[in-house]
Nucleic acid binder design. Structure first.
Length: 417
DNA sequence: TCTGGGGTCCTAGGACCC
DNA sequence: TCTGGGGTCCTAGGACCC
């Protein structure tokens, strides 16, 4: 048995935890750079604010309806996510942290009233973290996802928990479920299925798995079995190590000068090194890329990337920054308005396995450790690489960002009694 | 003026091995 | 007339997830 615990409108709920006056009010959260809508409270959904809507297009409507607007605050969301996951971990022998706001729990062999247990979990998470969650329970992950969807839509009168086995007429529920509301099926694939005469989840459950495999691949075959109640997608309590690390941003304004771009990619390289270090990984390859805006039709467009292979796998920021800089020199062309850049580490391996060079002159890991310690102790960005500080112009627009309530001492909430 | 930032997996085809 | 059988690795592109 699986349970899927999913935070309700997670980013919007995070903002609400520290601004309870927004309870019952419409909220939207914007992507980096305040570009487009990436999260909506239920009230904002009722007002028909579309997911992914560019903010500049809906701004008048947002003001007219008095919708509260927030820039993304990942320090806050990440920290609250961690707290929610901590609480959830106490309720099952094994859990899989599936995304920032979702967690699968292994419910195998637990006492029988799983719905009651689920309600207790929701209540505890809400009380201890302030975040409302919903839970779906089923014998497969795909069905647990679907049960969770039902729970969110208020299917159960008892509260935000649905146990698939307690549904009287699952055929009716499946018949009323659109294909692209299922986990793993997008719009595109739904259209392909419809061309084969399958137009809802019930029809898909009744399809022949072997035929589905032939026509749409092994992924679709698994979905059919999962809908039938046969589990094919196991719980992954131990996340496999990352295969790739990517750090990129769109800029707050278009950039043209080499030094502006250099500051940006230096920063991305340094952040990538931190990610490597945290996950005890090393990389043997770095790829740096730059691009103009895909939406800008008036100015000439350009995008390119450069790849550097290291003599030995590294996790040192100094190595990554140097490689990013050299790569940038190879692909930079003056005269373009760059909108975005990034650093990709596509070939990761555990640091402990990294093959050292016979001729290595230095071990940069000690330096990396020391820098990390200083920044943890005295605060983010206490020490930085100079090339990161050549320019600030690439920094994101974050006009509506709330304080980092839980991760910065200076931004702690003050409460008057 | 203005449109995110991460990830993973599968498949097909080509190159190469014995 | 008639030309094997079994693998791996890599890459690009497509698709999906949050």
């Amino acid at each position: 048995m699986f349970a899927l615990a999913d935070c309700n409108n997670f980013y919007a709920s995070c903002e609400r935890v520290f601004q309870p006056r927004l309870e019952g009010k419409p909220i939207v959260v914007l992507s980096n750079n305040d570009g487009c809508v990436i999260a909506r409270s239920n009230e904002a959904k009722v007002l028909q604010v579309a997911m992914g809507a560019p903010y500049f297009k809906i701004q008048p409507y947002v003001q007219q309806e008095g919708i509260a607007v927030f820039s993304s605050n990942y320090a806050l969301y990440g920290d609250l996510s961690h707290r929610v996951m901590q609480v959830l971990s106490g309720f099952a022998p094994r859990v899989e942290l599936y995304s920032i706001d979702e967690c699968f729990l292994d419910f195998t062999g637990l006492p029988q009233d799983l719905s009651g247990y689920g309600l207790q979990i929701c209540k505890t998470v809400k009380q201890w973290t302030g975040i409302p969650i919903s839970i779906g329970i089923a014998p497969t992950k795909t069905l647990a996802k679907l049960a969770n969807r039902l729970a969110k839509k208020g299917y159960s009168a008892n509260g935000p928990v649905v146990d698939w086995r307690n549904i009287a007429d699952t055929d009716a529920v499946l018949a009323a479920t659109a294909l692209d509301d299922l986990w793993g099926i997008s719009r595109r694939t739904a259209v392909k299925l419809q061309a084969l005469g399958i137009d809802n989840a019930l029809a898909l459950r009744r399809a022949d798995p072997k035929r589905m495999r032939q026509q749409l691949g092994v992924v679709m075959e698994r979905i059919v079995y999962e809908l039938q109640g046969q589990s094919c997608i196991p719980l992954e309590a131990m996340p496999p190590p990352r295969k790739q690390i990517l750090t990129s941003r769109s800029f707050g304004e278009k950039l043209s000068s080499f030094n502006d771009l250099r500051a940006a990619v230096s920063h991305f390289a340094a952040r990538s090194a931190e990610k490597l270090h945290r996950q005890h990984l090393a990389t043997s390859v770095l790829c740096v890329f730059v691009a103009t805006s895909p939406f800008d039709t008036r100015n000439p467009s350009y995008s390119n990337s450069a790849t550097t292979v290291f003599n030995q796998p590294t996790q040192a920021a100094a190595d990554l920054i140097q490689a990013a800089h050299q790569g940038l020199q190879r692909i930079y062309k003056p005269g373009f308005s760059y909108q975005r850049a990034g650093v990709i580490l596509p070939d990761l391996q555990p640091m402990a396995w990294a093959q050292k060079s016979l001729f290595a002159e230095r071990d940069t890991n000690e330096l990396q450790d020391t820098l990390g310690q200083i920044n943890r102790r005295y605060g983010k960005n206490t020490v930085r690489y100079a090339s990161e500080m050549l320019s600030q112009r690439w920094h994101m627009r974050q006009q509506f960002k709330s304080p980092s309530y839980t991760t910065q001492w200076a931004e702690l909430l003050a409460v008057r009694a």
